[in-house]
Write a protein that binds this DNA or RNA. Structure first.
Lengths: 246, 246
DNA sequence: ACCACTAAATGAATGGCATTCATTTAGTAG
DNA sequence: CTACTAAATGAATGCCATTCATTTAGTGGT
């Protein structure tokens, strides 16, 4: 996933051997003014942000921390992105390229949707803080995202979907996927009613039975409660939408 | 929805006539030390937060702004809530009481789910910043939320759902609802591919056709694109889950 | 009636955050 | 050679949640 082991997180190859910086871990203090070779670019910022997130989570993704990882002053970042939101967009678009759309074109529409939806959910379950960003993101600014939509749209079209149902169907699936990504991160005991359990008998019983329903799949591949709910909803959507095709 | 017109946002009735504060809009500076009658309580904080959000949005919901609206110092809030996150939980639980579960108990399960799901989505479409909070919230701390789950669980149980399918079905529906709530807030032109349109022919065509599909419902009640996608997904889930019942 | 304790307010920090701006230096187009 | 622009530094700025010492008021026990 991340290929570089360079401390400075995947930058243009040149800068490592530069006059000052990074002679041996020590960050020799670059003097002010434009450096001979550019230190930053969007790709480098993106990969540093990704590395930072995987190490420290989204709370750790601050402009200051990002700058430190790239060995620049925080203000230098603003020569390449307009805001922190911009950084999140870069990360988001990169993640979209990790979503598996390979099923479209081989095999059935149903299987292609399954592959796509599960991988989409899995990717963003690790990046839930991006969901509010994506869900409202104009695709114009996000080439990878656009590429994904193109592949999926073609898949739906080839499967015989009426043209005017393609976008609403994809949107509905995506909505379900985003919501389900959150669900993956929920604590195990999220449905523990605690002291109120006696006043909620139906709910408490349902929670208890869902736990026993889970036991069958203990230690299985997609066996967590969040997986069970996702599978259930996804199959219902696939069945429902499949019926739309002519 | 909000009943009070008092500037100080729905507090215990007493304090308005108190010695110092609020003689005429002017906030006379309360002196330090514990006041004779308590100024703050959770209900008051909740309703002030709600009012603030409806006036200024979630960006405007800061501890300082909340304190100002309640005419106290920011630090006073921490005698009643442990953190800002706590305030969000108070708001969230209040909103849950606005979700319409009245359909469960009268009429068909399908109609009850429709009423519930649409109102649930509508409520949180206005409060999307709470979604990351809710989705991961242990129900223990949220009595209204728990009450909603109890009613819905009973509805599913009475409709003949197998006990071990109730929770996963509700979770799947909720996931779809949360994702769809974001969708409501998306900009109209979210799918405008802009300059890349030529390289994404299938997607561009699908977007164009979905727009014409919309024209039929122009000016209708639930006629926005987000409504179309929501209806499509919801009906698929209802149909799929309905088949589970014995 | 007194005393210790707790509850609830103020007001003054604290530290972290994104962002801006003046300044410096280095390439680049005419 | 000379503007101009690009890309870095470093020093603010202002906002934010949160903490802490302090003050005052009620409360339960003797």
């Amino acid at each position: 996933m991340l290929e570089t082991t360079d401390e400075r997180a995947g930058m243009p190859a040149l800068s490592a051997a530069q006059g000052r910086a990074a002679t041996s871990g020590g960050a020799q203090r670059r003097r002010a003014g434009r450096p001979s070779a550019a230190v930053l670019d969007k790709a480098g910022i993106t990969s540093a942000a990704l590395k930072l997130v995987s190490r420290k989570g989204y709370d750790g993704l601050t402009m200051a921390a990002l700058a430190k990882m790239l060995d620049v002053a925080p203000s230098a970042l603003y020569n390449h992105v307009a805001s922190k939101h911009d950084v999140l967009l870069l990360v988001e678009d990169h993640l979209m390229s990790l979503v598996d759309v390979s099923g479209f074109g081989h095999g059935s529409w149903e299987d292609a949707v399954r592959t796509w939806a599960w991988s989409y959910r899995d990717v963003f379950a690790e990046h839930t803080p991006l969901i509010p960003v994506i869900a409202v993101l104009p695709v114009t600014d996000a080439p990878q995202t656009l590429a994904m939509y193109e592949t999926v749209s073609k898949g739906f079209s080839d499967a015989g979907f009426p043209q005017d149902r393609i976008v609403p169907s994809i949107v509905a699936l995506e909505s379900f996927i985003f919501g389900s990504a959150y669900d993956v991160t929920a604590p195990e005991d999220i449905f523990d009613a605690g002291s109120m359990a006696e006043s909620t008998p139906y709910f408490t019983a349902a929670v208890r039975h869902s736990a026993s329903g889970q036991e069958a799949s203990a230690g299985q591949e997609r066996g967590r409660p969040a997986d069970t709910a996702f599978r259930l909803g996804l199959e219902a959507l696939i069945a429902g939408f499949g019926a739309i095709r002519k």
